[in-house]
Design a protein around this nucleic acid. Structure first.
Lengths: 224, 224
DNA sequence: ACCACAAATTAAGCTTACTTAAAAAAAAGA
DNA sequence: TCTTTTTTTTAAGTAAGCTTAATTTGTGGT
């Protein structure tokens, strides 16, 4: 697997997700910044390798194997983004460019170490889901950890993660449930704890660690 | 700068350090696992680029510029080794292989973030010095931080780092000086603090943070 | 100083990942 | 349906980074 082939697979997968339309050679060529002829060339080769269901003049469709490989690259990319952002405090712009290169030079072992170090995260700092080692995608785009949000915003709870035994008990005590809307009143930089106000006007303060396990989307105009 | 050229420069530099002999094409070819012809080819190109003082049938000598580039690659390599080892808890074998790839895909910005995160380290986990951003090499090979050593070993203090205001005061209180020999009695995994026994039989316990600033060589047969 | 031999260079050729330009196929309009 | 336009493929060529084989150059032994 060369850098080129990895990018080829990854971008077919991403274009598939983004647009509703089938992935054409010209579309991919533009995204990869190469000529259309180069895409055709690659596509034929990858068809032979069995990662692409290649048929001339037809749209580009990944095979089962190709999809797995694409997800692995995306997993590495998003883990790097999160790692560089959270651990090395790099900004979101930089982080993408770095990940774009590092994703192709990261062993599976290193990838799993990062995954563990980050405490098995589900989303990258842009809110995109990090595919699992098994190739399963946690959830839809735009969802991010509650602990990533800034003061003043409103959020809609999308997913609660029950990893530790005590989390479900804590959700219950605080009265946190899926589909609730909260306003972020204050983020304490000292320990990362977050003060939330529910739709009913109740105010609660939860720890950073707990917020890590709550996933939500940012809401501008919440009707309710 | 391609991966090939970076490896070319890096290995000329390393061979220079290792052996007393001048770096020949065949020596470098063996280290890089390529043919001698490939080395000649590269050498001519790099001569034109000004990173190598190339003359046919003569040994390979880096130019000023080439040396700087080589040191930068080595800096990245050793920072990665230390980072992967200390932060992601990867073993020394793996760490080298990973660094061998990552070193070529790391921006200067990322490199400096790692450097800061690691608290401006001087040595990699193998005890090799990490060249500074300015290209200055901190010290000789084999030296490593006292905090890297394992229980039961003996060490010879080679260098004390005075970065923080209080460190010199602490060295004085504990009676730690250059050229002293210590035996590592115990390493407390709880907080990383280390119990040391001096040659005179005195026992002291220092913190992990302090040990980070003490550099030593491991000694097998200490005559004294 | 000469000769043999080891080491370095040159020459020719290969693969990967591209390029541009021409040809072929599919899609779209009337 | 037929033609025009768009898209894709094929063909030919390039640069980097290698290979092996043949040639050239420097050097150590006598």
């Amino acid at each position: 697997m060369s850098v080129s082939t990895e990018n080829f697979l990854k971008n077919i997968y991403l274009l598939n997700q983004e647009g509703q339309s089938p992935v054409t050679s010209s579309l991919l060529a533009e995204k990869l910044n190469v000529s259309v002829a180069a895409v055709t060339d690659m596509a034929r080769k990858m068809g032979k390798q069995g990662v692409l269901d290649y048929k001339p003049y037809r749209s580009l469709v990944l095979s089962e194997a190709g999809q797995k490989l694409a997800l692995k690259v995306i997993r590495k990319h998003r883990l790097w983004e999160l790692f560089l952002h959270k651990v090395l405090e790099m900004d979101l712009m930089t982080v993408h460019e770095e990940a774009e290169r590092l994703e192709h030079h990261t062993s599976d072992k290193l990838m799993e170490q990062m995954y563990k170090y980050l405490d098995k995260p589900d989303f990258d700092p842009h809110g995109d889901p990090i595919p699992g080692g098994d190739g399963i995608i946690p959830s839809e785009k735009g969802v991010r950890s509650l602990s990533e949000l800034k003061e003043g915003g409103r959020c809609l709870i999308r997913k609660l993660r029950y990893r530790h035994q005590e989390t479900s008990e804590m959700y219950e005590r605080y009265g946190i449930e899926k589909d609730m809307v909260f306003k972020i009143k204050k983020v304490f930089s000292f320990d990362g704890s977050i003060e939330l106000e529910s739709g009913e006007g109740e105010t609660i303060t939860i720890s950073r660690k707990l917020a890590d396990n709550i996933f939500c989307t940012e809401e501008e105009n919440v009707s309710k």
